[in-house]
Design a protein around this nucleic acid. Structure first.
Length: 640
RNA sequence: GCUGGCGUAGCUCAGCUGGUAGAGCAAGUGAUUUGUAAUCACUAGGUCGGGGGUUCGAAUCCCUUCGCCAGCUCCA
């Protein structure tokens, strides 16, 4: 007998060897139809699984968020069955559930076209309505290889062979209607439980993600328990599309890319350049407060530098081919580190000088494969907010703490929440155990002192450094790779970067490498999406648009504008010969925070009529009060 | 880089199986002087991404090249 503890604390005894389905019948007979699996000691179990050990037990029901994976996985099987009806020769790849849905890869005689997708979707609907039960069977590995081989399922055979190598003896097969697949499960009770699904897109993908392998056709889809959830998901996709920085760039005149100049090279238009300027201004002032020195370093450097740094050895495929200057090869810089080291090394440094903190908004150029370029988020030339702290080993923790504090200040101002990860030594790495221990220990110490929760990313460090990675969450709940702090165990050695210690001998310096915003291009591209193009007051390129109702107020509008500009506000006047509704509409579409509407009434009374882009008409107020309000929003960096 | 799709006026897009381009918005001009998300009329604007080919004839078919999009891959 085994004993199972239910969520309410009660204990149920059952015979060893009972299936989850039988258990459902025994415990919750009335809800049996809704039960599609179970969690036993937090492990997902299929209905058909046999239990031989007890533990905590809770059932997975249709409608649960936790059981969406099962639904989606089963839906991918249903899709594969439909695809086989359309393409009887299709060879199956894999069909897992993923974060927001599922996919299935197939080798097909021709690529999928949009019509195929609708056709497949229709067939799926028909198949689902047949309420076909998912059945599981098992097969010894040898037999399975022969079986799938006879069906021409070469990829499945490969998978089974790998399973055999891992020591598996038996594999499981799920069958639903005319379809069967090598599969670990779990699956739904029957296909009738698949009601709400949608095929989303097609793409090509390599078998096992390796470009040496054959290309398969991938079909993406998603499934939910209710149409409301599906609709909410689709609405969110639409919202993300509307906020796409490439789309907003056109609507708001933010940046451009020019084919005849080059892919992945960004032209910042005045409005976005203003945002960048304001971000940089903030960035600089926060660095000054924290004792950083600003530096500038050249954009090209001779070969020897990158030989010494190891970039030509390890990073060459991301570097552009050299320019010849006086017959000597010069490279465009892919990173700023060597430059900062050169400055550090211009004199002997005493331990009394440390820490030394250099920061630079340094523009670097890196080769990115053409297929990876993506608006401002993935480019070939970008400006990093790069900094290097040179310090002694016992200063690491303090310095890292200071950097985390800087990160928190900046990210909070932009309205990002974040998660901190500590990434430790990977398998392939440089340096001694002791060095890694000191560096990682200091990072951990800083995090402990910071006091907020962090996660451990075991082995997730880079080969030359343990690091703290910070993942940002934006307004749409999406994750972005954010700030990174690395204790570099490589470059100080390569460049022989030292300081004189209290013992009057040379010591290798500790070099902390960090970026907070990452690259200006990516950060601001992401920011555009985060705020949906509606920059908060402190960042808005135009903060206030003055809208005269007739050209009788144009002169007055300019006067007011001058007064506001004199107070440091960014103001424009829309003096075009248009109706007020039209001007408001355009200012609204440009997502300008405030509009001042000026008609004869205002001119007489000396008041202004203020409209906010979100709150609408705010009524009449005094210009001074309006300026107070705006100043307050700017100083407090109010997010809206 | 790979696979697939796409590339027509500044923008969004139409243009059936080849017969040499069209709308809305934007722009310019004029009228209108307007009160909280689109006033009206007229005008101008394109070697249909570039190059090559097939054809009497190509935006439409083929090849090639560049770029964009979705994935894959990569991400020191």
């Amino acid at each position: 007998m085994i004993s199972l503890v239910l969520p309410d604390g009660s204990v149920v005894e059952a015979r060893s060897g009972i299936t989850v389905d039988e258990l459902a019948e025994k415990i919750l007979p009335r809800q049996k139809k809704k039960i599609i699996g179970a969690l036993v000691d937090d492990e997902i179990k299929d209905l058909r699984d046999i239990l031989t050990a007890g533990g905590s037990l809770s059932f997975l029901m249709t409608g649960d968020q936790t059981s969406l994976d099962i639904l989606r996985h089963s839906t991918s099987h249903l899709m594969a069955e439909a695809v086989l009806q359309v393409f009887p020769d299709a060879v199956l790849g894999i069909g897992p559930s993923i974060a927001d849905g599922f996919y299935y890869d197939f080798k097909l005689p021709r690529p999928l076209e949009p019509e195929d997708v609708t056709r497949i979707e229709k067939i799926m609907e028909k198949l689902a309505s047949k309420n076909v039960t998912f059945e599981r069977s098992e097969m010894p590995i040898d037999e399975a290889i022969k079986y799938f081989d006879s069906k021409g399922e070469v990829f499945k055979v490969e998978l089974i062979r790998d399973l055999a190598e891992k020591g598996e003896r038996v594999i499981s097969i799920y069958r639903s209607g005319g379809f069967e697949d090598l599969c670990r499960g779990p699956h739904l009770r029957h296909t009738g439980q698949i009601k709400v699904f949608k095929l989303l897109s097609t793409a090509a993908a390599y078998w096992r993600g390796d470009e040496k392998n054959p290309v398969l056709q991938r079909l993406y889809g998603t499934a939910f328990w209710s149409t409301e959830e599906l609709q909410a998901y689709l609405d969110n996709l639409e919202k993300i599309k509307e906020r796409d920085h490439r789309r907003l760039a056109k609507e708001l005149d933010l940046y451009s890319i020019h084919e005849d100049v080059g892919a992945g090279l960004i032209f910042w238009h005045p409005r976005l350049a203003m945002v960048r300027h304001l971000v940089e201004e903030f960035w600089r002032s926060e660095h000054l407060k924290r004792g950083y020195g600003f530096v500038y370093t050249p954009h090209i450097a001779q070969e020897v530098i990158y030989q010494k740094s190891g970039h030509l050895e390890n990073y060459a495929e991301n570097m552009y081919s050299p320019l010849l200057i006086d017959e000597k090869p010069y490279y465009l810089k892919p990173m700023n580190c060597p430059g900062h080291i050169k400055i550090f090394q211009t004199r002997r440094r005493s331990y009394r000088d440390l820490p030394i903190r250099y920061c630079e908004l340094g523009t670097v150029y890196r080769y990115e494969r053409s297929g990876t370029l993506h608006g401002m988020l993935r480019v070939r030339g970008f400006t990093q907010d790069d900094a290097h702290v040179f310090c002694t080993p016992d200063q690491i923790a303090d310095e890292v703490y200071g950097i985390i504090d800087l990160v928190d200040t900046l990210m909070t101002a932009f309205g990002y929440s974040y998660t901190i990860f500590l990434a430790t030594r990977p398998e392939k790495s440089l340096g001694s155990d002791e060095e890694w221990e000191v560096a990682t220990g200091a990072l951990r110490q800083a995090l402990e002192r910071w006091g907020k929760p962090y996660e451990l990313d075991e082995g997730g460090g880079v080969f030359y450094a343990p690091k703290i990675d910070i993942k940002l969450q934006d307004a749409l709940g999406r994750e972005w790779q954010g700030p990174t702090i690395q204790v570099d165990l490589n470059l100080p050695k390569r460049f022989d970067v030292t300081y004189i210690g209290p013992d009057n001998t040379e010591h290798e310096v500790i070099m902390i490498h960090r970026a907070v915003l990452g690259s200006m291009e990516r950060f601001i591209g992401g920011l555009v999406e985060h705020v949906g193009g509606a920059f908060p007051m402190w960042l808005a390129p135009t903060q206030t648009m003055i809208l005269p109702i007739t050209d009788g107020q144009n002169e007055y509008a300019r006067e007011l504008s001058n007064r506001l500009v004199a107070e440091g506000f960014r103001v424009e006047v829309d003096a075009r010969n248009e109706k007020i509704g039209y001007k408001i509409r355009e200012a609204q579409e440009m997502k300008i925070p405030y509009m001042i509407i000026l008609g004869a009434r205002e001119q007489e009374s000396g008041m202004i009529a203020v409209r906010h882009r979100k709150q609408g008409d705010l009524g009449a107020m005094r210009l001074d009060d309006f300026m107070e309000r705006c100043k307050d929003e700017v100083i407090r960096k109010v997010l809206n």
